[in-house]
Amino acid sequence: MADATMTTPDRASARSGAAPTSDLASRRRKRPLLSYSTRDQLTGYLFIAPQFLGIVLFVLVPLVLIFWYSFNEWNVLAGTFRFVGTENFEKLMGDPKLAPVLQATGVFSAGLVVFNLGLALFLAVLLNRRVRGITVFRTIFFSPVVVSLVAWTIVWSFLLQDNGGINGLLQLVGIDGPNWLREGPTAMASVIVVQVFKNVGLNMVLFLAALQGVPSEVQEAARMDGASDRALFWRITVPLISPTILLTSIITIVGSLQVFAQIAVLTQGGPGISTTVLVYYLYQQAFDFHHFGYGSTLAIVLFAIVLVLTIAQWQLRKRWVFYEN
């Protein structure tokens, strides 16, 4: 939507809510029990009640509870729940798996962002021209977004088996492919690539929108000044779409922290713990080993990371504000 039609909520509600009250009241046949604005306030609370209470109950209360749980531990079979003080935090500090897990999380997120944004931008640039049939390709690149995540991942797990489809195709051209999911580096790469192909269409569409928003006059002017296509792209287009690049990268990073099904289906965190990202580790501790207290401690770590990323993003946006106008 363009700037012109945007109204700030204050102005909008000032005009629609408070102002016409008296005007309206005189036209009413029956006098209401409460004044219009009071009733309107009540209506407002009622309208937001389901959503608001849901957030309190299903987000804020659990958020408080993870801090409480992290000071306790369960024994599910024995049916005990006891206060253990800072034991879980000491365990966290001394956990030899924490560093590799955080590293895997970082590598996964970084790899995903770079590959996803790179490919998305590349595809968007290719698709950003008026050529017959281009929408067919747009549909193709976008289609995995609507394919069931687990179905998509299961298919790839078959394709990536040592004797699976990918190596079968490679063998046809005389290449002996690696055992993708069983060797550390290729396993991580596989998980990233599978995830990128699944969701790159979303970022591609965002970039396409951004590219189409680049004013043609700017491009024409640059071209008249003798800028090459490449210079045009890097000096003019990329800076102009940089807010979208920043936004998509943050969305992609935050999304990458939540990846679970892909790991569970493709590698179960292996080989070794090379693809055990934080969410998967949290799940393992809480629901495989039933260490709910330690799982909650890991949830705090995850929460802290998301919080830091969010704050960093606010700071970054301030600096990039120029391009948004």
């Binding site: 937001i48 959503q51 608001f52 957030i55 309190v56 299903f58 987000v59 804020l60 209360v61 659990p62 958020l63 509870l65 993870i66 749980y69 935050v254 922290l257 939540q258 679970f260 969410v279 949290l282 799940y283 809480a286 629901f287 709910f292 799982g295 909650s296 949830a299 995850l302 929460f303 998301v306 919080l307 969010t310």
Partner: peptide, 21 residues
């Protein structure tokens, strides 16, 4: 603002307490 906190807290963070609740 309270409602928007929901955007900042991935469901994975609260899965253990939600399970217990």
């Amino acid at each position: 603002l309270v409602v928007l906190t929901g955007l900042l807290i991935p469901a994975e963070v609260t899965i253990v307490p939600l399970f217990q609740m």
